[in-house]
């Protein structure tokens, strides 16, 4: 079993904490002038996303978590699971709704996503930073109005709802930033 000593702690290191995989977010070395040194650590539980604070006596070791990030292509959703394929090996993996979580709003077939795997099983899905999606429902556009402000809600093919400018019409393609959920631009085909 691989372990990491507190000497190896750094941002991004993946470790096991209370039975769950976690990533180190912040590591502070604290030492009174004479006496015991500690590492004050903030970790993100990779299953729940929660931030945990924990102190380690310096020199202690912690079990490493077998967590890797890999690029995979989104294939389809069968109603229960979301299926992904490794573009080189064609190996397929299925992720359930808890794992896909909010990412499902942005998953479009054929898009390349990042899957975080723990012991080979999906832990979380990160969609591409920008996705191009079709508007399937919105109020009719205001022709010629490409300059003045004003937004309206639009429903996209994946089910996501985003605020778009007034000139965007049903059936058009738009680019969305998945990190903020905001409209970026209209895509002319």
């Amino acid at each position: 079993m691989a372990t990491y000593s507190t000497n190896e702690f750094k941002r991004g290191l993946k470790v096991m904490l209370d039975g769950d995989p976690a990533a180190i977010v912040e590591n502070e070395f604290v030492k009174p002038g004479k006496g015991q040194a500690f590492n004050r650590v903030k970790l993100r539980n990779l299953k729940t996303g929660r931030i945990i604070e924990r102190t380690f006596k310096s020199g202690e070791s912690i079990e490493a978590a077998d967590v890797v990030e890999t690029e995979m292509q989104y294939l389809y959703n069968d109603g229960e699971a979301w299926h992904f394929m490794h573009p080189d090996t064609f190996e397929q993996l299925a992720a359930n709704e808890v794992v896909v979580a909010d990412a499902k709003m942005w998953l479009k077939e054929q898009d390349i996503c990042i899957l975080t795997l723990w012991n080979g099983a999906p832990l979380s899905v990160t969609p591409p930073n920008h996705v191009t999606l079709k508007v399937i429902e919105t109020e009719p556009g205001v022709r010629g109005d490409t300059a003045t402000g004003g937004n309206k809600p639009a429903t996209l093919e994946t089910g996501a709802t985003v605020q778009v400018p007034l000139f965007v019409n049903e059936g058009e393609l738009i680019k969305v930033d998945t990190r903020t959920g905001e409209y970026v631009s209209r895509i002319r085909e």
Partner: peptide, 9 residues
């Protein structure tokens, strides 16, 4: 003070 859980102490 929220620092009662110390691994190794």
């Amino acid at each position: 003070h929220g620092t009662g859980n110390v691994t190794g102490l």
